[in-house]
Write a protein that binds this DNA or RNA. Structure first.
Lengths: 357, 357
DNA sequence: TCTATATGTGAAACGGGTTTCATTATGGCT
DNA sequence: AGCCATAATGAAACCCGTTTCACATATAGA
């Protein structure tokens, strides 16, 4: 059962395909009577224009590639859903490109991930996407392999590319990112306002831009308050719940322990919560914890997480809007910053014994 | 900067486009020397074949449409990641079609959702996808609007359609689903084995197939054990954390309260956990809770959830494999069942005072 | 009445590949 | 030497829309 084409319609309507195309796209006036005849036939046969053929001539597909590192990490569905919302309104459809790559022990293989990104980049170009948005992976690297960056720049010459929540230093690639440093300052300042002086920070990967920026926010907030940062209270290399639990357990079992922990994401904070629970330390009475990202799960825990909202949905929305403009050839700012917001819930409280509020 | 085409390559290599196509696809022997000349040019110009043009003639795109109700619900990323894993290996790329539709109060609008599904169905056909997989939405309806079903059947005539985790009664549409009844039996039987006799069940939507099936599993397990099911201990219409909290709070504040709650998904279970905590009831000592789905978050809670794993990743993988076969025109079973597994963690314990084990 | 402009339409080229069919060159075998 | 299978290649058609260009007709303004 061959699908019906404009030719079929044209033949039966006794017109040329050009006319059919015209009613299809409203691109030139068609006599009312002719139009009706054609429309009727289209309905009769449930005609559906072949998007491939259309895109081939139009040189636009309405398709976008969305490259992310791991859909299973609840942060990404959040930004994706914001992106989806806006992209749909703008008439785009998108390929989801997950670059996660794990070995048997379910550990992340970074090199494979970058390789996947490259494969997807090239695949998406073949598919003639109108634009590409990329989050995580190489985009997060503070010192990216020049080769990886070069490739991205090469792609960006041919099709609009938008980087989310990262920063490739020294490149001219468009970005929309949360202000990570500001977000960290927000979190740490909150802790300081509550009277905490012994603040630890856990998680992140030292090679990632966002980690470095958050760390820098942490340091600057501490410095402004005249507080010392203790090197042994900065535990990095990890972003998962188990890692958070591990880090926090280490912190909490030491002779001297912090009264507050700033976690590089909510997953870590949830892990920290578990560690505190295991250690019999009450949150927030004896230990304040603040997370980062404000994923939905932040409200699932007991107590609910105080955290920094990166406005993940908003990042996604902004991404869609910006990419659309880039595709349309409009000018957009090279860099757009989204301001995080502090969400105070139940895991933070004034330092016990004091009453700063 | 017009992208280079086979014509450009052909001209410079002094061959016809047919020959270029042949080296591109290895579809007929080409003299070694000629081949090398062409390959060299391809590299020189970083030639990337236009997938649209290719698909137009080949009548296959390597594209799949994946329709789901809400990527923000952690169950779906699990399924999706399994699907992604396998689909990528098989050389497919897929459009993510999220049909969620909410009003200002962030409430789900079902009718709009079905409408979205229809839009996507038609859009995907225009895009010439090789196949469609669909999960949630109308697929979950026990008594679907005949019109919705008819549409699906119409689509399935033109392109392979695979339904996940649902059942449209009386249709000949291919499906792969977890055995929901069996899963529920597993959960309830576990509770019964622990000595519980007063078992409540919360969540789900009474109009959904999976809810009905799980309920039927619950009932059959209760009946086999000679236990009565109390109508006021079956609270439905909801799948979220707040709903779980609400349902559980109601249950726990009654004069007579259950000693165990079977939740229709993990989100509800997390909500129940919160309600118990608020009510000062210890889990699992005073109340056992079992969830359903085994989303990653099931291990984030304190205590960790005992739950029924639907093998979500496995469902996704199976979907990809099956759809691939359907696309290839191979025969596949109309219905494939995936067996859930019970995952015992920390929210269930023997009924206090007894020691059944 | 005669341009000027808008309306209505078709033929043909185009987009960038693949595939069929025909043709020539080549090698192996009797 | 003669024949056949295979290698190697090109011309042209095809996939299914869109777009350009040309042309005919109609309407309006001068």
């Amino acid at each position: 059962m061959r699908p019906v084409t404009v030719y079929d319609i044209a033949r039966e309507a006794n017109v040329s395909v050009a006319t059919v195309s015209r009613v299809l796209n409203n691109t030139a006036p068609v006599k009312k009577e002719t139009r009706e005849r054609i429309v009727a036939l289209m309905h009769k046969y449930q005609f559906q224009p072949n998007a491939l053929a259309r895109s081939l001539t139009r040189k636009e597909t309405g398709m976008i590639g969305f490259i992310l590192p791991d859909i299973t990490n609840p942060f990404f569905p959040e930004v994706l859903s914001g992106f989806d919302y806006e992209a749909r309104k703008l008439g785009y459809t998108y390929f989801l490109c997950d670059t996660i790559s794990t070995n048997e022990e379910n550990e992340r293989l970074y090199d494979r991930q970058y390789e996947r990104e490259s494969q997807y980049l090239s695949l998406l170009m073949e598919k003639q996407v109108d634009g590409i948005v990329m989050i995580g992976g190489r985009v997060d690297l503070a010192k990216p392999d020049p080769e990886l960056t070069r490739e991205l720049e090469e792609v960006a010459k041919r099709v609009p590319v938008l980087l989310l929540n990262g920063s490739l230093p020294k490149t001219k690639l468009n970005r929309v990112s949360a202000d990570q440093k500001f977000g960290a300052e927000l979190a740490v300042q909150h802790l300081i306002d509550l009277g905490h002086r012994d603040i630890a920070v856990i998680g992140g990967y030292s090679k990632m831009t966002n980690t470095q920026q958050r760390l820098s926010g942490f340091r600057s907030a501490m410095k402004d308050a005249g507080l010392a940062v203790r090197k042994e209270w900065i535990l990095t290399e990890g972003f998962s719940v188990p890692k958070g639990q591990e880090f926090a357990a280490k912190l909490l079992s030491a002779k001297r322990r912090p009264t507050a922990i700033f976690c590089m994401n909510d997953l870590l904070a949830i892990g920290a919560l578990k560690a505190a629970h295991r250690a019999g330390i009450r949150v927030p009475e004896e230990l304040s914890i603040v997370g980062y990202d404000d994923i939905p799960q932040a409200t699932y825990s007991i107590p609910e997480l105080t955290t920094v909202s990166l406005m993940s949905q908003e990042i996604g929305r902004q991404a869609a809007r910006t990419l659309d403009k880039m595709i349309a050839g409009k000018k957009v700012p090279l860099f757009q910053s989204i301001m995080p917001e502090l969400v105070v819930r139940e895991t933070t409280a004034p330092l016990s014994g004091t009453n700063f509020q």
